[in-house]
Simulated scan of single mutants.
Amino acid sequence: MLKYAYNMLVYGTEPIELGIARLAKFGYDYAEIVGEPTEISAAQYGQALSKHNMPVSSIVSIYTPERDLVSSNPAIRANTVAYIKGNVDFAAELGAKIVTLTPTACMKIKPEVDIEQEWAWAVAGAREAAQYAFDHGVRLALEPWNRYESYLVNRLDQSIRMVDEVDNPGIGVMADTFHMSIEDKDIPGAIRSAGKRLAHVHLADSNRAAPGEGFLDFTPIVEAIRDVNYQGVCSFELLPAAGDIWGVLQGGKAPEFLDPYTESAIKYMKNIEKSLGMSDVK
């Protein structure tokens, strides 16, 4: 039986309690929240989480040009490690077990220097952050992004390579089915190749909408997740098809990502579990 979360990033600027109440209403096991602890503290989440008995599974890190593990500017690299450590502290305070990590700033698609040097910087920064995470009972999840959002780690085999080079129990690989639908030839096979390294899963269809809204076949994906004995959480990270994603979300212009997709996503996946005879699915 899989455990499910929903990334509250897509709820935009609505009050925190409304989003958490929505997750509780539709039977989610966890909330997944954005890692900006200087903007919204753990205490601000605490009351709503307690009211609805909703734990936090994971913290999604936001990688801006000032948060780039492979920047040619050493101050930016240091700032990025500090940001990840801050999200680890945030996770530990909330009881979350996962913090996401991607080595480049989002939408940075060209290296600044030799790519092998950037890879080495990424490994070094991830190793420092992973040790900090391990010391605080948290695990980093290294997420590949597709070629239109990054250039260094695009596929799951690249994430596996980097995690193996970091060689620390405080980091594992992350599978995101949207990115994988662009970059990985065989999504279930890639998940199986991760094996025990699999630390976190993001679910979204080929168009980044709720499962069932695109062309991905999630049955073999669920089978692969089951086959590697994954014990973590599967979180829906859904985003609108728009050039200005943040403007759409902040402006409340994607209402389908509220109740409609929050409800349909978990129902769709639980129906797949039921069809596969997975235990305790009703």
Rank of each mutant, 00 (worst) to 15 (best):
L23Q: 12
E32D: 14
I16S: 00
K25N: 09
A105I: 05
A241R: 07
P255E: 05
R77A: 09
M180N: 06
A242D: 13
A209P: 00
D227H: 15
L249I: 05
V70C: 07
L216Q: 15
C234T: 05
A209T: 00
S50E: 14
K274I: 10
G212D: 07
K267E: 11
R161T: 00
D164P: 06
I115K: 00
E263I: 02
Y45V: 04
V281Y: 14
D114L: 08
D157M: 09
D259S: 07
A105M: 01
L142N: 01
P144K: 14
P220G: 13
S264V: 12
D89F: 15
I59S: 11
A204K: 11
N53I: 14
L258H: 08
I187V: 11
V70Y: 03
V201H: 03
Y151I: 04
N87G: 03
I40R: 14
K270N: 15
H52F: 15
N53V: 10
T64R: 08
A21N: 09
F134G: 03
F218P: 03
P188I: 04
K110Y: 15
T262N: 06
M180Q: 11
V88S: 00
K3I: 01
A209F: 08
L49D: 06
G172Y: 15
I171C: 04
G232D: 11
M1V: 03
P188Q: 05
S235T: 11
